[in-house]
Design a protein around this nucleic acid. Structure first.
Lengths: 214, 214
DNA sequence: GCGCTTATTGACCGGCCGGCCAGTTCATTG
DNA sequence: CAATGAACTGGCCGGCCGGTCAATAAGCGC
């Protein structure tokens, strides 16, 4: 039955496939929620975009809020998995690792603008679930920095969690607030900003000559 | 029927006062929009909270969108004035000025969480008006940094706009995404984070020993 | 005092909202 | 081959949405 299915594309799958239907609904919900936020999207829109009846969405997800939760959970679990693998593939703790982590995180956000927006909506909701998910990644990164501090690679008088927090927030807000600073005179593009931020960040972390160890 | 109205306090001003009415509507709209966003608020709620009829809001502002625009404009003009006076009161260009600017901006956000949320909603809308308003302030700050660079106080190989951008974004996101990182293990409170960020930031700006002038 | 303007009201509108339900189609399975 | 249950549909519901309108009441210049 799957031999020459020429156009199973947008609508009307050749055969019933609840998993695929669920996925199509989630995809449409993701796009629309990310674009307009929970309150700004109508179930009818999601139904229309996913090529499915409104009733069917309720059948699969129960309610609009449950669909929103499912949307966030799918997106965030993908995000967490992507970040975790990236973080764990290099177990060494040095300056280059941190620099590359910043670059990787920055590029992830650059390539996943919808995840950035989803974070922003979630923050405004006060939903802490995405933060809990990040806690593990941050703890991992902070531990690497702590090791580098003890090895004398980075200055010791800064909370490693705040090091991670600083670069995560600077990168995230660069993309979240793009419309805010896009027109500022003299501002550079993504790569130029990343370069300058890395200069500031890495130099700020270097052990200071006059710093007295606690 | 209106003989013994015992409580004229919150509502029912003794006499008609359209300016005060406008203000009450704007206050209620600000609180609600900031809390739930444009799409999440019903005109009926604003009417109820401000002690005014829904029709009266339309009389004064025309439409929900116009009220939203008026709300943003009022809040942002207050923000801009507050920041401008703070920035212009100290014309010198040195390390202490930048440090104090960061502290002032950080504390402004800390004391005005509703402005922070309004920025976030506005960014998600893609509305660039608040960014245009900030452009003037940023240009002013960047010029100060450029002067300090030429005086040899800061390293010269970083775009001054990116210096401002970095601290603005780190501070803003600290408050915007509080629900995200509030539960991270080992993270400090507002003042501890500000201290650590300033250490990183100021040390990162110091002229590097081995930097060759362009 | 008398109008004129305008602030203010409450009732009302068409339309859209999320959700529900009775019914139909389909795949599985015993 | 039933028949059972899940996938799926169209239509409907009560209620809320933003907005309008005619009518009233209060300030204000004359």
């Amino acid at each position: 039955m799957d031999d020459l299915t020429p156009l199973p594309d947008a609508a009307t799958p050749a055969t019933r496939d609840p998993d695929l239907t669920r996925g199509r609904i989630l995809d449409a919900a993701f796009e629309l929620f990310v674009e307009k936020g929970f309150a700004g999207v109508a179930m009818r829109e999601i139904a229309e975009r996913s090529g499915v009846t409104k009733s069917l969405i309720h059948h699969h997800f129960g309610s609009k809020e449950a669909l929103w939760d499912a949307t966030k959970e799918q997106a965030f679990s993908q995000y967490a998995e992507s970040q975790r693998t990236e973080l764990k593939q290099n177990p060494r703790s040095d300056e280059a690792l941190l620099r590359n982590s910043v670059i990787d995180y920055f590029n992830f956000l650059k390539n996943n603008p919808r995840v950035v927006r989803l974070f922003a909506w979630t923050h405004l909701e006060g939903d802490a679930s995405c933060g809990e998910m990040d806690a593990e990644l941050v703890a991992l990164g902070a531990e690497r920095i702590r090791q580098a501090q003890q090895a004398g690679i980075f200055r010791r008088d800064i909370n490693p969690v705040h090091v991670v927090t600083t670069f995560v927030m600077a990168c995230t807000h660069w993309f979240e607030a793009r419309s805010h600073h896009a027109q500022w005179p003299g501002i550079g593009n993504d790569d130029e900003f990343l370069d300058d931020f890395l200069k500031l960040f890495m130099a700020g972390l270097a052990p200071s000559a006059d710093a007295s160890p606690a």
